[in-house]
């Protein structure tokens, strides 16, 4: 479905603290991104059209934090996501492309999203999303073997990973060694019971931070995704930092 801001209904769009993301203010506040493909939803999400005096209509798509860990992290108050207009992002675990479509909205026409997904079933949906969004390069391949897709990936500013695999720190690490710029960033969603279903989540997260450090990734921020996800954390880190320097 969709709802419209035409004719007196009161929805105001405000920029979010994170560039490229917006807040739709009505009865409740909604997280939204500016739709790259006007007139179309990707996965049945609601759209909001704003009549603009200057340049006609702008359309926004509602981003549900219960369906996207990145949206949950943003609403949870994450300090930096390192995904902004113009960013190049390597997205590991793209699934059907729902969150990828919002990342595509955020990075916009001057950015690129290299979207890696191994499952054939999700891959078909991802390919359809990428057909309409030319800033998404779909890669149906195993993220454990980044050399397989080396012909189609450039150096990127940020790696976002939501692979839900026990060896995900290593998967992120080898992809960083191939494709992440010096002092680029990783943003990783960690589901505790995908790593170890018997240990305490806090212990699992701490162990994952250690593993990331072994991959030359210095963790900078950790955030749990309550109330949107249980026993999930998002970790942000910087790759190959200068040893003595501080980064924000």
């Amino acid at each position: 479905g969709r709802f419209n801001a035409k004719g007196g209904s009161k929805i105001l769009i405000e920029p979010h603290r994170h560039p490229g993301i917006y807040i739709a203010k009505s009865k409740e506040d909604l997280l939204v991104t500016k739709n790259m493909v006007t007139g179309e939803s990707v996965y049945g999400e609601k759209r909001i059209t704003i009549e603009d005096n200057l340049d006609g209509k702008t359309e926004y798509r509602v981003w549900n934090p219960f369906r996207s860990k990145l949206a949950a992290a943003i609403l949870g108050g994450i300090d930096r996501i390192h995904i902004a207009p113009g960013s190049k992002v390597l997205y590991l675990g793209a699934a059907s492309g729902t969150t990828v479509s919002h990342v595509s909205d955020i990075v916009g026409p001057n950015g690129l999203v290299f979207a890696v997904e191994f499952s054939q079933r999700s891959g078909r949906d991802l390919l359809n999303v990428a057909k309409k969004r030319t800033n998404i390069i779909p890669i149906i391949e195993d993220a454990r073997h980044p050399q397989k897709y080396r012909m189609i990936v450039s150096m990127v500013d940020t790696i976002f990973a939501d692979v839900a695999q026990p060896d995900q720190a290593r998967i992120v690490g080898i992809n960083a060694h191939y494709y992440l710029k010096h002092r680029g960033y990783v943003v990783i969603s960690i589901k505790a019971n995908c790593i170890d279903s018997t240990a305490q989540p806090e212990a699992v997260f701490a162990e994952e931070l250690m593993k990331l450090q072994r991959e030359m990734i210095r963790p900078q921020e950790q955030l749990t995704l309550e109330p949107y996800e249980r026993d999930h954390a998002v970790v942000v880190g910087i790759y190959r930092p200068d040893r003595k320097q501080k980064y924000d």
């Binding site: 078909r124 390919l127 057909k131 390069i137 779909p138 391949e141 897709y149 012909m151 189609i152």
Partner: peptide, 10 residues
């Protein structure tokens, strides 16, 4: 190439 490689994979 990303599209054609991935289409063939699927």
């Amino acid at each position: 190439l990303g599209h054609s490689y991935s289409r063939a994979k699927v």
